[in-house]
């Protein structure tokens, strides 16, 4: 791995399913230790981009590199090894429902770390303490609230102390206090370990509180319409779609006159 290369480098990426192109010619870099947001309205391809970054879908063309090492065209074994240095928090937390919280967090450590049971137990206890779930280790996911599931999902994503953590809508469905605690947790991960965090979200509070830089995707453009620091984009962007999103204003062309079913549905 190249130590001076960006943590993530995406070049001319084209994403889609079968013949349907969702995103075209997407290029951006994420620096090591950066908190990087992928933002945009619903259906613009944020989650699609994330699925391609974490290797769940193959891009139609283009390249993805992690610390200079090619990911998209790497051998399956190399890809699997690279995936071990990622942590992913899914939108629904995606905890394995037949395992307890302890077993969920311990599984990646048992499979990949070579640590003994006592060390794994210590690490699980530490991770659960970090996310505020001490005492819930032996609960099953079905016994947890939405916010607790998300915290357990974060503990699992952080189990291996990954160098890059991907968060898919970390605050979605959570109360503001819990969402803010999760934001604080993301900041602490970066401060403690210099972890690179890629956050897919449209929570403006989180974007301005945490984000070093962002890219904004747009469905009509099928790609990036802005990238930069959140504050800077809000103040200086000339694109009305960007300023409308970042200033919480109605999107251009969606005033009172277009509030018909046809206008809302867009077709």
């Amino acid at each position: 791995m190249d130590p001076v290369a960006p943590a993530i480098s995406v070049e001319h990426l084209v994403c889609g399913y079968d013949e349907r192109i969702i995103l075209r010619d997407v290029s951006f870099n994420v620096g090591a230790g950066e908190i990087f947001f992928v933002v945009g309205g619903s259906g613009c391809g944020k989650s699609t981009l994330l699925r391609h970054l974490i290797g769940l879908n193959r891009p139609l063309s283009g390249t993805i590199r992690f610390s200079g090492q090619p990911f998209t065209e790497a051998d399956p074994e190399v890809r699997r090894r690279m995936l071990r240095s990622f942590g992913v928090l899914y939108q629904s937390a995606a905890l394995w429902s037949s395992l307890t919280v302890r077993e969920n967090v311990a599984l990646p450590l048992q499979e990949h770390s070579g640590l003994g049971p006592r060390e794994i137990n210590d690490l699980v206890a530490l991770k659960l303490a970090q996310v505020g779930l001490t005492g819930f280790a032996d609960f099953y996911p079905a016994e947890l609230s939405g916010g607790m599931k998300k915290r357990a999902g974060i503990a699992r994503a952080l189990a291996m102390d990954p160098s890059i953590v991907f968060f898919d809508e970390p605050g979605a469905g959570l109360d503001p206090v819990t969402a803010r605690e999760i934001d604080a947790l993301i900041l602490r991960i970066r401060e403690d370990f210099g972890t690179t965090c890629v956050v897919v979200s449209h929570e403006l509070d989180s974007i301005f509180r945490l984000g070093d830089r962002l890219i904004m995707l747009d469905r009509a453009e099928s790609g990036i319409i802005a990238q930069g620091a959140p504050e800077q984009l809000r103040e200086t962007s000339q694109d009305p779609r960007v300023t409308a999103f970042l200033r919480r204003e109605p999107p251009p062309g969606r005033g009172k006159s277009s509030a018909s079913p046809r206008g809302v549905l867009g077709r």
Binding site: D122, A125, L126, A129, T134, G135, A137, D138, D192
Partner: peptide, 16 residues
């Protein structure tokens, strides 16, 4: 982190 792990080990949560 180290102190936290030791502390948790000293006060284990009793099983239900």
């Amino acid at each position: 982190m180290a102190e936290q792990v030791v502390e948790i080990g000293l006060h284990p949560v009793p099983p239900p």
